[in-house]
Amino acid sequence: MSFSLLIVSLILAHLIADFYWQPMSWVHDRNTRHFRASKLYLHVLTHGVSSFLVLLLWEFNYGWQALSSVVIATAVIMVTHYVIDLAKSYSSKGVVPFIVDQLAHLVILLLLAIWLSDNDEFFTHSWEWLMQPATLWVLCGYLLVLNPTAVFIRMMLERITSGFSATGSLPAAGQSIGMLERVLMLTFILLDQFAGVGFLLAAKSVFRFGDLSASKDKKLTEYVMLGTLLSVSMTLFIGLAVNYLKAV
Rank of each mutant, 00 (worst) to 15 (best):
F152I: 15
F123W: 11
T135C: 04
A104W: 01
L136R: 12
D101A: 02
C140K: 01
Y142M: 03
L157N: 11
K93E: 13
L139A: 15
D120T: 15
A166D: 09
L157K: 14
I77H: 04
V145T: 04
A113C: 05
G94H: 07
C140I: 10
G168Y: 07
S91P: 00
C140Q: 01
L110W: 07
T149N: 08
L136T: 07
N147K: 11
M131I: 08
I77V: 15
T135I: 01
H105R: 05
T149L: 12
L170D: 02
S92W: 03
I108M: 08
D101L: 03
M156T: 15
V95L: 14
I99Q: 01
Y142I: 06
F122H: 10
V96T: 07
P97Y: 12
V138W: 00
I77Q: 08
L157I: 03
P171L: 09
A166W: 06
P171W: 08
L139V: 15
T167Y: 01
W127V: 15
T80V: 13
A113Q: 04
L110C: 08
S162G: 15
I99L: 11
Y82I: 01
D85E: 01
P97E: 09
L139N: 05
L86H: 07
T80N: 05
T124V: 12
L170M: 13
R154C: 05
S162L: 12
D101G: 00
I84S: 00
F122W: 11
D85T: 01
I114G: 06
V76P: 02
P148V: 12
L106W: 06
L130G: 13
V151D: 08
T135N: 03
V100G: 09
G168I: 07
A87Y: 03
G168N: 09
W127R: 10
V79P: 02
M131T: 14
M155R: 11
W115L: 14
Q102A: 02
P133I: 03
I99F: 05
D120V: 12
K93T: 10
E128S: 15
M131S: 13
P148G: 11
I77W: 03
G168Q: 06
W137T: 07
Q102Y: 03
A166R: 09
R159Q: 13
A150Y: 05
L136D: 04
F123L: 13
L111K: 06
T161A: 14
L109D: 07
E158F: 08
S126K: 06
I99H: 00
Q132K: 09
M78T: 11
V100L: 13
L130M: 15
P148L: 07
W115Q: 10
S92E: 11
V96K: 06
A166S: 09
C140F: 13
D120Q: 14
D120F: 11
L130H: 07
L112K: 10
L144D: 04
I77T: 14
I77R: 04
W137R: 03
S165K: 13
D101V: 02
